[in-house]
Amino acid sequence: MGIINRILLFVYTLFFGVLCAGVAGLCLHIVPERVVVNEYEYLVSQWQTGAVAGVLLLVSIHLLLCSVSGRRTKEVRSGELLVIQGAAGQVNVSLTAVRDMAERIAAGVHGVRQAKAKALVEHRRDEGDFLKLDIRLEVGQERSVAAISDDIQIQVNRYVTQIAGIDNVEVAVSVQSIASGVSVKKRRIK
């Protein structure tokens, strides 16, 4: 479950917890009936009550759909990849480490000015875990974009497979911008 859904679930269950505590208090006659009636009439007359109810209804529908959705794949954007499961124990590689490696390799390719990578693991029911690397580049004009992209895909794929020992990997390269190649020198003398 993602972080946003967790926050929604927390708020939702907190609200219902408080509501249930209130109902229990009513049943035990902790709160006088006239106070309850007054509060009820006040709340019903406010538009904010309707707005909160509407928001909670939408959250309910969202969480209900999340719970019954049968997604074939599940994406994980943080955590670790299991590389080896041996008799001596497990070897896990964090997605942060994989991302840093990919960025470093991509930045070292001739023609690349800047590289940013995102790494996520896709849990596919039928095929197992897949590592997806999304590399975004700023390139220069000295080399063709196609050649740079091919180079990066080959090098990153090779490194992740041979050095990190991760077999199922997909590398997606997207070129975000092309640098103009003109650098402005600042005068140092007056």
């Binding site: 124990g89 070897v91 896990n92 964090s94 942060t96 470093r104």
Partner: peptide, 12 residues
Amino acid sequence: VEVNVHVQGVGF
């Protein structure tokens, strides 16, 4: 019984 290794980063 086991030694689990977690690679958290790469040193450049």
